[in-house]
Simulated scan of single mutants.
Amino acid sequence: MSASTPPRLTDRTALTRNRRRSREEALFLHDMAMDDIQDRLDMVNRSFTTPAVVTGQPQKWSALPGLPAPKIVADTEVLALEPGAHDLVIHAMSLHWADDPIGQIIQCRHALKPDGLFLAVMPAGRTLHELRAAMAEAEAQVTGGLSPRVAPMAELRDLGALLQRAELALPVADGAPFTASYATPLHLMRELRYMGEGNALDARLRRPTRRAVLMRAMEIYMESFGTDDGRIPATFELITLTGWAPDASQPKPLRPGSATSRLADALNAREVPLKD
């Protein structure tokens, strides 16, 4: 592996197999992501005519209200996107499995027309932090070691930096965690499987998890995070990235010292000089 080649995060064969096992009724994160994307598009005073969607769930993202049928693109290492062909590119719920997320975003930017819009939405941040903690502690106690079990979740600041590195204009990254409730940790794990979000890490153990590890993880989860009604919470956080392909028509930041009025005047505030 060369110094410029990112480390391999994902076993694509396992990821494809996991996605084929997904069930429509378990894809509520995709439903929430679609609602979020739709809200953002509604706030943009523009009609998009050539949208594209990068996704591992093509049946889910084949139509978005108010838009022409998008070109659906698999989230492979090299995206099947034509340079400068689209006024909207959405990377939908798959960037967290990318070996090279910055490369994915750059490819999307190259596919945009000038002043075209890039949107990405993915689970990140505090997603499944309870499960990650319980599994790690259980495995350490039972086996004395740790193995990769949940895809690493990027933080908001890091994802925002990717937009800047990809040279997208007016970059914004935002999101907020929310909590779902399950009867037991096993119910959560089963739903993750039906989401198509089972363990597809390339460095994962290639054998079933020991029963003793699973049972101890369930105990730790319930002891550490269980609620008064006997259920367990699971945190999810969807982060959305927004950026525009550079264009001369876009707003530019003012040069330092070029302001014609003072901020204190605009705020009707008293200006206090700093002491040396």
Score class of each variant (00 low, 15 high):
Y194M: 11
P83F: 04
K275D: 11
Q59S: 13
A166R: 04
V150K: 00
Y194Q: 13
R193P: 01
A69V: 08
F236W: 15
L128C: 06
S62L: 01
S47K: 14
Q141I: 06
R46W: 11
A200Q: 10
G125C: 04
S2E: 10
R40G: 12
P208T: 09
R190G: 06
M34V: 09
R231F: 01
P83I: 05
H187G: 03
V44D: 14
D202N: 11
Y194T: 11
A52I: 06
Y221A: 02
Y182H: 06
G66L: 02
A138C: 05
R20C: 00
A169V: 03
L159I: 13
K60S: 08
A136Y: 04
A200S: 14
E271R: 05
E24T: 08
L192M: 14
A133L: 10
L79N: 01
M1R: 07
S22Y: 00
A183F: 08
K113F: 04
M153C: 11
E155H: 12
Q38T: 14
H30A: 14
H96S: 09
L214W: 03
T50M: 13
T179L: 07
H110C: 09
T55E: 00
L88C: 06
V44M: 00
A69F: 02
V53Q: 08
I72R: 09
D100Q: 06
T143M: 11
R8K: 07
L168K: 04
R40A: 10
L163N: 06
V73P: 12
E219P: 12
P256M: 11
L27S: 04
D87K: 13
T240A: 07
V73M: 08
T242S: 10
Q250E: 11
A183I: 09
